[in-house]
């Protein structure tokens, strides 16, 4: 439960329907969860804004939904709003902007209308350009190959297989395919292409090229978020994030195994 601390004593929940506050905070929290923020950040940001609006606030974060309850000082009125968590993909850009919004609301004592207007603008934030992500990811995975001891040829093989595999992932996600099937297909083709080192006897470290070719698909952020949620005692969300990440890892592992099986390779 949050103690009441308003920006201005004249501002109170009676001027604006509590339901609108609850709806705004629920939408804010749902988007913040969807863009990959940790549960503690969602709690703190939403609580900060509730304090600034002069209302009492409670949030209940579930893996697929967020529920917000707000009530006024004398507990004569209360409102509950629930929203489904947004499926917008991890975006630290959105995370930073939404966190900044909570501080702007608290420091500048913005009204609900102004906050909602800024929130709508933040929702329109464009993701990073797909070609930029494609090239940078390929370079990143090739660097990974080097970190694991791969030579120059292995790095080139990994660069090309990541470029193709990630492009396939982008195409399948644009088409609305299930993300698990996407991971399976992307890892299958990336692993198969990177097996060129073994098949055509190119380079000195073909096994490293094969092993590192699918690392760009590992869902690192959900794993990190799940442990962070455990630390802050959001065990349900932690388990949900962990299982999601584990299932994606299983899918990419299955794609890698399938690729190696079809090509008759054994590296483990």
């Amino acid at each position: 439960m949050m103690t009441l601390k308003t920006c201005d004593k004249k501002r109170s929940a009676s001027g604006v329907a509590l339901q609108r506050f609850a709806a705004f905070l629920a939408e804010y929290a749902a988007l913040l969860y969807g863009c990959g923020a940790t549960s503690i950040r969602i709690e703190k940001n939403a609580a900060r804004m509730a304090r600034a609006f002069g209302i009492n606030f409670y949030i209940f974060i579930m893996p697929a939904h967020v529920s917000v309850t707000v009530w006024d000082d004398d507990e004569s009125d209360a409102a509950v709003a629930a929203r489904r968590t947004a499926a917008c993909g991890i975006s630290f850009n959105l995370n930073a902007r939404l966190s900044r919004l909570s501080w702007v609301v608290a420091d500048q004592c913005l009204s609900l209308e102004d906050a909602a207007e800024r929130f709508e603008k933040i929702k329109q934030t464009k993701p990073t350009g797909k070609w930029e992500v494609l090239v940078l990811t390929s370079i990143a995975n090739a660097s990974f190959c080097h970190l694991f001891g791969g030579d120059g040829v292995a790095m080139i093989i990994v660069f090309i297989s990541t470029l193709v595999g990630y492009r396939l992932k982008q195409i399948m996600l644009e088409d609305g395919r299930d993300v698990r099937l996407t991971f399976l297909c992307a890892s299958f083709f990336s692993a198969s292409l990177s097996a060129a080192g073994h098949i055509f006897n190119i380079g000195g470290t073909p096994e490293i090229a094969l092993g590192t070719s699918v690392l760009y698909l590992i869902p690192g952020i959900p794993y990190l978020n799940s442990v962070s949620d455990v630390i802050y005692r959001h065990y349900l969300c932690a388990l949900s994030r962990f299982f999601e990440a584990a299932i994606l890892t299983a899918c990419l592992s299955a794609g890698l195994c399938a690729g190696m099986l079809i090509l008759g390779l054994k590296t483990f």
Binding site: A37, A96, G211, L215, Y223, T249, S253, A254
Partner: peptide, 28 residues
């Protein structure tokens, strides 16, 4: 920016990806 925006991506190169997918492979 919040610190998570800086340190989460910085931790990604240290994520044990090979250990993770080998876990599934050895299970199978």
């Amino acid at each position: 920016c919040p610190p998570e925006v800086c340190f989460f991506p910085a931790l990604l190169p240290m994520i044990p990806g090979m250990y993770a997918y080998r876990t599934i492979q050895y299970l199978l």
